[in-house]
């Protein structure tokens, strides 16, 4: 069971990132729970300077951009 968090307050890229992560999770057939973090005080608990951010099992793996599906796949398999 993976815990996936999308950091960012509702920007268009946050939604695209979430959709992409959900797709990769579906493709890989793994179980994961998704959480949208929009509160800045919560977001800033991670070492982030620009949104959207992607957190997998409490580890920030990407910030400020939308990664590729392959990258998300690699992070999910770690």
């Amino acid at each position: 069971m993976k815990n996936i968090k999308i950091l960012g307050s509702g920007c268009a890229n946050c939604k695209r990132l979430e959709a992409m992560a959900r797709k990769v999770v579906g493709d890989l057939g793994i179980e994961a729970e998704f959480e949208k973090v929009t509160d800045y005080a919560e977001i800033m608990k991670y070492p982030i300077l620009s949104t959207p951010g992607l957190v997998i099992n409490e580890k920030l793996v990407s910030a400020g951009r939308i990664p590729t599906e392959e990258q998300i796949e690699t992070w999910l398999k770690e």
Binding site: G8, S9, C11, M44, L49, S50, T51, G64, R65
Partner: peptide, 14 residues
Amino acid sequence: TPFCSCSAVPLFIG
């Protein structure tokens, strides 16, 4: 620097 105004807050705090 790549910047989007939606990131202004984390950037400011950081």
